[in-house]
Simulated assay, not measured.
Amino acid sequence: MSLGFLFAMSLPALVAALFVLATVERFVRRKGSGTPLATAGIGELGATFEAGKREELEFRKEERQLRDEEGDGAPPRSHVDLDGGRAVLKLPD
C-alpha cells in the first residue's frame, strides 16, 4: 500500500476533507436549504468519540419530524385570526 492511500484513510484526512467541504458549502450553498453536509459529517464524527452525542443527534432528528399544532398544550382560551385582524381573549375564572 502506498503512503498516500494510508493518509487518505486516516482520521486527519477525514477532518481535512470535512473542512474543505465546509469551505466550499459556505460559498456555494444557498441559504435555508437544509443542514449542510459538513455539519452533519462533523456531528457524526463527534458522535464516534463522544458518548452522549449519538443520543443528542437522535433526539434532534425526532424533534424535526414532530409537528407543532396550534391546539396542542393548554386548553383553548384565546384565538388570534391574523387574516381577519381580530383576536378573541378568554380569561380564566
Rank of each mutant, 00 (worst) to 15 (best):
L37W: 12
F7E: 13
K53W: 11
F7A: 12
A87T: 11
K53M: 15
L14D: 01
G34Y: 07
E63V: 12
P12T: 07
G4V: 10
E58Q: 14
D81F: 06
L14C: 06
A40S: 12
E62V: 08
K61I: 04
V24W: 08
A16S: 14
A22W: 09
L21I: 12
F59H: 10
G4E: 10
E70N: 09
P36A: 05
P36S: 11
P75C: 05
Q65Y: 03
S33K: 10
E69A: 09
D83W: 03
L89Q: 01
M9C: 09
I42K: 06
S2F: 04
V88K: 00
F49L: 15
A17R: 11
L3Y: 02
L14K: 14
T23A: 14
D81G: 04
R77W: 04
L14W: 01
A8H: 02
L91N: 00
V20Q: 05
L18E: 13
S78W: 07
A8N: 10
F59A: 15
P36Y: 02
E58V: 12
H79M: 05
P92G: 02
D81E: 05
T48P: 00
M1I: 01
K53S: 05
T39C: 07
P75G: 08
T39A: 15
F19W: 11
L3C: 02
I42L: 15
E70I: 09
K31L: 03
A38E: 01
H79C: 03
A16N: 03
L45D: 09
R30E: 12
R30C: 01
G46W: 05
V88E: 08
A8F: 01
D68G: 10
D93A: 07
L91A: 07
E25N: 04
A40G: 06
F59R: 15
E56D: 13
K53Y: 04
F5H: 08
R64L: 12
K31Q: 11
F19G: 13
E70R: 13
G43C: 13
F5R: 07
P36F: 02
S33A: 04
H79E: 09
V88S: 01
P76V: 15
G71C: 04
P75V: 14
S10N: 06
R67D: 13
A38N: 06
E25C: 04
A51R: 13
R86Q: 09
G34T: 12
G52L: 07
L91W: 02
G85R: 06
L91Y: 01
G41M: 04
G46Y: 01
S2A: 12
P76H: 05
S10V: 07
E56V: 04
F49A: 14
R60F: 11
D93F: 00
F49W: 12
L3P: 00
S10Y: 05
K90A: 03
F49D: 04
R54C: 01
R26K: 10
S2I: 03
E55S: 14
A87Q: 03
R60W: 10
M1E: 08
V15N: 00
G52Y: 10
T39S: 10
D72N: 07
E70L: 11
P75N: 07
T39M: 11
L6K: 10
V88A: 00
P92I: 00
L57M: 14
A74F: 10
E25P: 03
L89T: 02
L45C: 06
A17T: 12
K31P: 08
V15Y: 02
V28D: 03
